[in-house]
Design a protein around this nucleic acid. Structure first.
Length: 124
DNA sequence: ACCTTGACAGCGA
DNA sequence: TTCGCTGCCAAGG
């Protein structure tokens, strides 16, 4: 066996890096009807400051089971252009879960996800 | 090794 | 609230 299991796993070809795996886990941890910001997901994954890494990961996802639609910008807005098909799909998926989406923006959760949300919400 | 990109975040005006 | 700029970090050319 390798002297460093962690390092071996990290080097395994075709396998996601530890960071990637944790980001995916953080996204899957968002319950239906709830949303989270990219930066928030990164923090929950133990990767503060890596919001863009989360975005990059999602841009090349392909995993249909991943609740990507629950990930929004820190201001509660959908990250896709308003005229894009992805924007429409994300809005629809969120509404299907009871999330109120107005003009591409989610109110009462992400942006304002406030202290109560962070402390007593799904992450805690 | 350098420069550009990107489903971003935070802050000031 | 919207707009603009700066900071960040990983990936790709």
């Amino acid at each position: 066996m390798g002297a460093s299991p962690v390092r071996d796993a990290y080097h395994a070809p075709g396998m996601e890096t530890d960071a990637t795996a944790r980001i995916l886990a953080a996204i899957r941890a968002i319950p239906p009807g709830r949303v989270a910001g990219y930066g928030e997901v990164a923090r929950r994954a133990g990767l503060p400051g890596r919001a863009r890494m989360v975005a990059r990961l999602l841009s090349g996802n392909g995993d249909r089971d991943l609740p990507w639609h629950r990930v929004l910008r820190s201001d509660g807005r959908i990250a896709f252009p308003p005229d894009s098909p992805e924007f429409a799909e994300q809005s629809q998926r969120l509404r299907a879960e009871g999330v109120r989406v107005e003009n591409g923006r989610v109110r009462g959760q992400a942006a304002a996800a406030t202290l109560d949300e962070q402390v007593w919400g799904f992450g805690g």
